[in-house]
Simulated assay, not measured.
Amino acid sequence: MAVDRALANLDLNLLVTLDTLLRERNVTRTAERLGVSQPAISGALGRLRRHFDDSLLVRIGNRYDLTPLAARVAVLTGPALAGVRRVFDSTAEFDPSGLEREFTIVSSDYASTVLGPLIARRITERAPGARLRLEQTTPYNVDHAADTLRSADGLLIPHGFVTGLPYLDLYTDRWVCIVSADNPAVGDALTMDLLAELPWVVIFDRPTAFAPASRQLRMLGIEARVELVVDGFVQMPFLVAGTRRVALLQERLARLLAPVSGVRILDCPFEVVPVAEAFWWNPMYRNDPAHLWLREILAEAAAELRPPHRP
């Protein structure tokens, strides 16, 4: 009974606030994320501090950090929220038309551009009360995928980066090279010698963050002369256009952006392992009705993708 009384005195909205506060570590950003006023979040933080008898957030220089207790609690808030969602989403027959939930998918700008519109259209049509949040992935998100998926519904990333988590295979794509449409150094085809000579635009270029095709090129003995390093794929064609640069890009994205960016698409002069895009999620969502529905939406959207048209 004591536990029941304790629970009766808790506001479940505080769990959402706590989870966001511990991830953002900032009252203003938490307020913006939750769409409420800053004083409301400050008040909630005060209540949480009284409940835990702990500061939770402590100032270190110009930023806030978690107390040891808050760090332990942060590991629990994501699974706790997921459990609450499963309870309230459970019905005899799942009906997405009445669903009020935000789905958060961590994704590269490539997958968001190619697949995102197809996912968003289906969610809007079938679950008008739901909302989709597409968050840009980072090397940290990928290197710590299990942690990322405690507060997100899934991660859109190709095979080769994540292991030990359930996944749904979606579609394949191939790597192509892009060069400026007016690059005089490149004719109708690229050669390995040209790839070694031309300056490159690459993504991340870190030991655990890279485009697999770039790593494969290095294994073939070509050390790219890197001129620009970026953190997204969409910007690459615009940084190649009007220059001598070359870049590797997924074909579907290259076909979308070539007409507006002024680049040409050329086959790679070496065999490249294709992109095998997949959706990864936390095992706690395995039987969650809303999450099962989301995975069906993703599978449908991926099935709509056709091989890109090649002129």
Rank of each mutant, 00 (worst) to 15 (best):
D89F: 09
V272G: 05
P237E: 02
L239P: 00
T163S: 14
L168T: 15
V36N: 13
R29Y: 14
G129P: 01
R23D: 07
F204Y: 14
H144P: 07
A44W: 02
G46Q: 14
D193N: 09
V84M: 13
E304P: 02
H159A: 15
P184E: 02
A290Q: 01
I123L: 09
L294P: 01
T191S: 15
Y64I: 04
M236L: 07
L198S: 00
L168I: 09
I41Q: 05
A185Q: 12
V162T: 12
L266R: 06
I105L: 09
P79F: 06
W200R: 01
L48I: 06
P158Q: 06
D173Q: 03
L10P: 00
G43H: 15
R122F: 01
A70K: 03
V3K: 15
F103Q: 01
A130V: 01
W280Y: 12
P259Q: 11
A213I: 12
R225C: 06
T172F: 13
L115W: 08
M219C: 09
L76K: 12
R174I: 04
A71N: 12
T67P: 01
R206D: 08
C177P: 04
F238I: 07
L190P: 02
T243D: 02
S112G: 12
I41R: 04
R47V: 08
I60M: 14
P311C: 04
R59T: 04
P158I: 08
L253V: 01
F88L: 11
D182W: 14
S97K: 09
I41H: 00
E251Q: 15
L248N: 08
G221V: 07
F161M: 03
A258R: 09
F88S: 08
N183I: 03
T172A: 11
R295F: 00
R244I: 01
T163G: 10
W280G: 04
A241T: 00
R121K: 13
A2I: 13
P68Q: 11
T77V: 03
L34W: 04
E223R: 13
R50M: 12
T67Y: 09
F210V: 06
H309I: 10
I41N: 04
W281T: 07
R85C: 04
L56T: 03
E277L: 14
V263N: 05
I123N: 06
I265F: 01
R310Q: 15
G160R: 10
T67H: 09
L217S: 07
V36M: 14
P39A: 08
V240A: 04
A120V: 07
F270Q: 07
R218K: 13
L15E: 09
G242H: 01
A92L: 15
R121T: 11
L155E: 02
T91A: 15
L99S: 05
F270V: 07
T67E: 03
G98I: 11
R63H: 15
G164T: 05
R121L: 12
R33E: 13
E135A: 13
L190D: 05
A241M: 08
M219L: 15
M192D: 09
A40N: 12
R252L: 05
Y110W: 03
L198I: 02
A6P: 02
V246Q: 00
V84I: 09
L194A: 05
V36A: 10
L66I: 10
P207Y: 03
E251V: 10
N62H: 12
L298V: 04
R150L: 14
L45A: 08
F103M: 04
L220W: 13
G160T: 06
T77D: 02
N26L: 06
R50T: 14
L253T: 02
C177T: 05
R133A: 07
E125M: 05
